[in-house]
Amino acid sequence: MRKYVIIGAVGSGKSTHSELLARDLDIVHISVGDIFRWHVKNHTKLGAQVRRTMAAGELVGDDLAESVVRDRLTQHDWNYGFVVDGFPRSRRQTEFFLESYDIDGVIHLDLPDEEVRRRVLARRLCNGCGMDYNLIADRPTQEGRCDVCGGELVSREDDTEQALAERLREYHERTDPILELFGRKEYVVTIDARPGIEEVQRTLRERLGLPLP
């Protein structure tokens, strides 16, 4: 069984690299952001709370994030392990995670702020089927329209200059203590997230001693 945590600023490729690991290692990808977005899209009570928080460029509180992760992991569909993307985001969440689960490795995707801004402000989301696009590397065939369902492509509510600046500030304040805690257990591998997907994936697998793609 393999259990990993992947940490990085918004736009660093956490979801992409988590999905690749999950597919090839037959483990479960648990994206806390995707769980929150599902609640927002389906207009649940939790979703309304998350939507207000994300629109303000703030991070979801510890109690709510821990509750979501705990509930997800009680489903026990991760017989061969998991890779968690988007959690923990604070010292308290890290302590909760270390006490609750034996982690095999923490992947830190390191990306400079200017590259974060470039990538994030180019993101688009289909308002019909939820398909993700990036106008830098994954443009739709028809400008502004989803290739899958033809829906309109829009920016996420939290992908604004103001919200991004706040998220980056909070991210840096919180991430150093998290990496320090995980680092005490010698879990952390830091990967330069600027190269292409294939190169980053190959590097992180080499560092973790995993089969190459």
Results as ranks from 00 to 15, higher is better:
residue 60 V to A: 03
residue 76 H to P: 01
residue 57 G to N: 04
residue 142 Q to V: 15
residue 98 L to K: 03
residue 104 D to Q: 11
residue 68 V to W: 01
residue 89 R to M: 09
residue 146 C to W: 04
residue 100 S to P: 04
residue 102 D to C: 13
residue 118 R to Y: 06
residue 123 R to P: 06
residue 139 R to E: 05
residue 120 V to H: 12
residue 75 Q to E: 05
residue 93 Q to T: 11
residue 80 Y to I: 11
residue 106 V to T: 00
residue 75 Q to S: 03
residue 129 C to D: 15
residue 45 K to V: 15
residue 110 D to Y: 05
residue 82 F to R: 01
residue 143 E to Y: 10
residue 76 H to N: 08
residue 110 D to P: 01
residue 147 D to M: 11
residue 121 L to H: 10
residue 45 K to W: 04
residue 69 V to Y: 02
residue 69 V to A: 01
residue 62 D to T: 12
residue 51 R to H: 14
residue 73 L to K: 03
residue 57 G to V: 00
residue 86 G to D: 05
residue 55 A to N: 14
residue 69 V to L: 08
residue 47 G to R: 09
residue 145 R to K: 13
residue 72 R to T: 06
residue 110 D to C: 08
residue 107 I to E: 00
residue 51 R to M: 12
residue 116 V to K: 00
residue 48 A to H: 04
residue 54 M to S: 05
residue 140 P to T: 01
residue 143 E to R: 03
residue 84 V to E: 01
residue 145 R to L: 12
residue 128 G to Q: 07
residue 79 N to A: 08
residue 59 L to T: 15
residue 71 D to N: 15
residue 137 A to Y: 15
residue 65 A to D: 02
residue 72 R to E: 12
residue 86 G to R: 02
residue 137 A to M: 11
residue 92 R to A: 08
residue 124 R to D: 07
residue 124 R to K: 10
residue 123 R to Y: 13
residue 139 R to T: 10
residue 106 V to H: 00
residue 103 I to P: 01
residue 74 T to D: 08
residue 143 E to S: 10
residue 70 R to V: 12
residue 129 C to G: 13
residue 62 D to N: 13
residue 101 Y to F: 11
residue 85 D to E: 09
residue 72 R to I: 09
residue 97 F to S: 07
residue 48 A to M: 06
residue 92 R to L: 12
residue 121 L to R: 04
residue 105 G to S: 05
residue 96 F to M: 11
residue 142 Q to Y: 08
residue 141 T to C: 11
residue 114 E to A: 15
residue 97 F to G: 01
residue 100 S to I: 09
residue 64 L to G: 07
residue 57 G to F: 00
residue 136 I to Q: 07
residue 126 C to R: 07
residue 100 S to K: 11
residue 73 L to F: 03
residue 112 P to H: 07
residue 104 D to A: 15
residue 118 R to G: 14
residue 73 L to H: 01
residue 107 I to W: 00
residue 145 R to D: 06
residue 63 D to F: 06
residue 90 S to Y: 04
residue 93 Q to A: 04
residue 106 V to F: 00
residue 135 L to W: 02
residue 53 T to S: 13
residue 113 D to I: 05
